[in-house]
């Protein structure tokens, strides 16, 4: 049976892992490669690197981080942040990423999804959607949550799917870093509307939150940062709880 994936997210700025609340007030959470090594040993299923302030100048530094993290992992690695062109994606994949995550660039140029899916396959193209509850719907934000768009998150996810996206990484800006739990309603809406896997993100604070997001939230994967970085919870304990609740998870022999 296909397991529900537990994904650790490394939000990277200037070569360091940082984490804030609702995308603000970032604090240092360590060295990306060191964290990746720890998560690999602890039995995490996948790692995502999001370069939260990627700029043209920072591209080379970003590639260095991707290489350093990839060197620690024999599990999937997805990289996002500032990927605007085919060349950007090629460099990231060459550096060791298995997937690229598109956000603002896909909103600005939706055809980029198709371009990359044609070249690397849909499985290599993740469309990240940052959404916030607003006026009774889920509004999509671009530029790391800075710029509201006119798009509805569920409609955008469906369009991304039709353009060739292989997965949706859905982040609740409202819940990001709060530890209050995933936005279950938004995640379930998205999961029902899409034929591709949904990765739920934003709000994980307790192990029970993961049970909720895989049942009520109907997520295919769940991503967390703070609760893993700051070691408030262990991956092995999370997997044990999910297994006890009959949620299929990957059990490594060491966990």
């Amino acid at each position: 049976m296909l397991s529900k994936r537990i994904i650790a997210c490394l939000d990277v700025r200037d070569g360091r892992v940082v984490k804030g609340v609702s995308f603000e007030g970032l604090r240092d959470a360590g060295d990306p490669a060191a964290l990746a090594r720890r998560y690999n040993i602890e039995g995490i299923d996948e790692v995502v690197i999001l370069d939260v302030t990627a700029t043209i100048e920072a591209r080379q530094a970003r590639l260095h981080t991707v290489r350093a993290v990839a060197a620690e992992l024999f599990i999937p690695l997805c990289v996002g942040g500032g990927i605007r062109t085919d060349e950007d994606a090629a460099a990231i994949i060459e550096a060791g990423a298995d997937k690229v995550s598109l956000n603002s660039a896909a909103l600005a140029t939706p055809s980029l999804i198709t371009t990359l899916a044609s070249r690397y396959g849909s499985q290599a193209v993740v469309v990240a959607i940052d959404a916030r509850r607003q006026d009774g719907r889920f509004a999509v934000y671009a530029r790391s949550g800075q710029a509201r768009t006119q798009r509805d998150a569920v409609e955008w996810a469906r369009e991304a799917e039709s353009r060739g996206a292989g997965e949706i990484l859905l982040t609740s800006i409202d819940r990001d870093g709060t530890g209050q739990g995933f936005d279950l309603e938004m995640t379930a809406c998205m999961s029902e509307a899409c034929g591709i896997p949904i990765i739920a993100s934003g709000g994980a604070g307790t192990l029970e939150h993961f049970v909720d997001v895989f049942t009520t939230g109907r997520a295919d994967a769940a991503l967390a940062a703070s609760m893993f970085h700051f070691q408030s919870h262990r991956v092995a304990d999370l997997k044990a709880l999910l297994a006890a609740r009959d949620i299929p998870v990957r059990r490594t022999r060491t966990c």
Binding site: M1, L2, S3, K4, R5, D45, S122, Q123, G166, E167, C194, G195, I196, P197, D220, A221, R250
Partner: peptide, 10 residues
């Protein structure tokens, strides 16, 4: 069925 089949399977 969600396709692509992405993830850990036995």
């Amino acid at each position: 069925l969600k396709v692509p089949h992405v993830g850990w399977n036995s």
